[in-house]
């Protein structure tokens, strides 16, 4: 019996390793192509490794960083992601605390609306949202975070209040009796307990905002700003006219930071995903 399971586990390890290669290969392929010379990048030779003749060093990467608006798109993406996620974490945790602690018709209605907004597809709002945000001048990388706050509130409030229901009330009551006002109670007592959930929600919202394409595409003033997904889609649209080498380098430059962050924060990211599901 024992021997049999050991053999089975070996076979399993081999199968899982093969799957691993299949999972990494697409990214590896882009990396290889980004090191090739322009003429060597064709549709049918995408699988070939660069040879001595076609190897181009890091020239494509230098090109990509130097031109194509890559740096400004990267900065725009970064600005939007950081401001939005910080705003979501602060405002939604406060809102969720109030909603779970003060139970009345108004807070129940709010909670219902937040949960409902998670299900509604973006296409339902995209046209009206784009024109509303134009009127309110929310079409810059610094102001778009207000829209993200409204749009990300559903998931964040849902997850925060799911966790807050499990915090014992007595600690907060003790703090209030000792003379804390609700604001102090929240930041001194609730936030420290909430830290793991803050990290989880932060990770989920970051993954969403950083990769979001359609919302910034429709809302941002596209003559002035573009984000990384917008830039890549724009390149793809002009297939043939665009230099493929720097394009591949661009993709690698967007994927690499993600992989590096992932290697260091894997534990938190995976925990964040698992937490997000359990609260459902």
């Amino acid at each position: 019996m024992k021997k049999k399971t050991r053999v089975f586990d070996r076979i399993l390890t081999v199968v899982l390793s093969l799957l691993c290669i299949a999972w990494i290969y697409p990214v590896f392929m882009i990396l290889m192509n980004s090191l090739k010379k322009e003429t060597a990048i064709t549709t049918s030779s995408a699988f070939e490794l660069p040879t001595a003749e076609t190897f181009n060093g890091l020239a494509n990467f230098v090109d990509a960083i130097g031109s194509k608006g890559f740096l400004s798109a990267f900065l725009t993406s970064l600005t939007i992601t950081v401001t939005s996620v910080v705003l979501i974490l602060v405002c939604c945790s406060m809102c969720a605390w109030y909603i779970t602690r003060v139970q009345n018709v108004f807070t129940k209605l709010c909670y219902f609306l937040f949960v409902f907004s998670m299900v509604v597809p973006f296409q339902m709002l995209m046209f009206t949202l784009a024109s509303t945000s134009d009127q309110l001048r929310l079409n810059t990388p610094w102001n778009i975070c207000i829209i993200y706050l409204g749009f990300g509130a559903g998931l964040a409030v849902f997850m925060f209040s799911g966790f807050m229901k499990s915090i014992p009330l007595e600690i907060e009551e003790a703090a209030l009796i000792d003379g804390c006002n609700p604001l102090q109670t929240f930041f001194l007592i609730v936030i420290p307990v909430l830290k793991p959930t803050l990290i989880s929600v932060g990770i989920l919202e970051t993954m969403w905002v950083w990769n979001d394409y359609l919302l910034p595409y429709l809302v941002l003033d596209r003559k002035k700003y573009s984000t990384i997904p917008i830039l890549i889609q724009y390149f793809k649209g002009s297939y043939g006219k665009v230099e493929m080498g720097p394009m591949m380098a661009c993709i690698m430059l967007t994927v690499l930071p993600i992989i590096i962050i992932y290697v260091f924060c894997q534990k938190y990211i995976i925990k964040g995903v698992a937490d997000g599901a359990v609260k459902g």
């Binding site: 609306l113 009206t128 706050l149 409204g150 509130a153």
Partner: peptide, 16 residues
Amino acid sequence: FVLPTLLAFTIGFIIP
């Protein structure tokens, strides 16, 4: 506590 989120939610979700 509630107003900032609710305002953004109104602009970003309820009105559209």
